[in-house]
């Protein structure tokens, strides 16, 4: 048995362990599930060490003598105080440092989600499609305006927004299902071509 076939058989075994959940919850699936979590955590730990700790903490401090970076590292260490009951309040300091980025999200949301979208929506209505997009945007926005009751003529107008959203959700659902199905095809191709192909 070649090493490639052995590797593919291991992959096929764990693939089938996960697929066995389609029949019912079973020990093989439970084993594979916990193993997957352990492997993912270990993988990310090693990756964090090589891709983050070495280039952003060790090398700047020890090799380039940028001692200022000891401060954020020590602030980061305060995350670990979360594990103690008495000192857990200290973990708020590194959290606060991360949350302060919310100031940028204020401006960036204003730009990307409001200004750019409004600019794209307020174009000359030169075609049927542009008119339909404009009507859709307005009615969807009004659907989420709850200060006025959705009744009478206004209610009928707002209802158009609901239809637009249903089409949008359907399209999103269709795209998501197809993405998952392509993954499924990939796994079946692995089992049929890579594993069974090598075994022939």
């Amino acid at each position: 048995m070649s090493f490639e076939l052995f590797s593919n058989l291991i992959g096929a075994f764990f693939t089938l362990c996960i697929f066995s959940f389609l029949y019912k919850d079973n020990p093989l699936y439970q084993m594979a599930e916990q193993l997957l979590v352990g492997l993912s955590v270990g993988y990310s730990l090693v990756l964090t060490y090589h891709r983050v700790f070495i280039p952003y903490v060790y090398q700047p401090i020890v090799i380039r003598h940028q001692f200022m970076l000891i401060i954020p590292f020590l602030i980061g260490v305060l995350y670990l105080t979360r594990l103690t009951r008495k000192l857990s309040w200290l973990s708020r300091y590194p959290i606060a440092f991360s949350v302060m980025g919310v100031g940028s999200s204020f401006a960036l949301s204003l730009h990307t989600a409001i200004l750019v979208q409004m600019r794209q929506a307020m174009v000359p209505l030169e075609s049927i499609n542009l008119t339909l997009i404009f009507i859709g945007t307005i009615t969807v926005l009004l659907y989420f305006f709850f200060s006025k009751a959705h009744s009478g003529t206004y209610g009928k107008f707002v209802n158009v927004g609901k239809w637009y959203m249903m089409i949008g959700f359907g399209a999103s659902f269709g795209l998501t299902v197809m993405a998952r199905v392509s993954l499924l095809i990939g796994r079946i191709q692995f089992l049929v071509l890579d594993v069974l192909g090598l075994m022939k």
Binding site: Q117, N129, L132, I133, G136, L141, Y143, G168
Partner: peptide, 26 residues
């Protein structure tokens, strides 16, 4: 056409709402 017209309109409307909510929370 579904992706470019009704889907775009609904996503844009939702995105504007999400943007306003995000600004308010920030």
């Amino acid at each position: 056409w579904i992706l470019d017209v009704p889907n775009l309109a609904s996503k844009r409307g939702i995105m504007l709402g999400v943007g306003l909510g995000s600004i308010a929370t920030s």
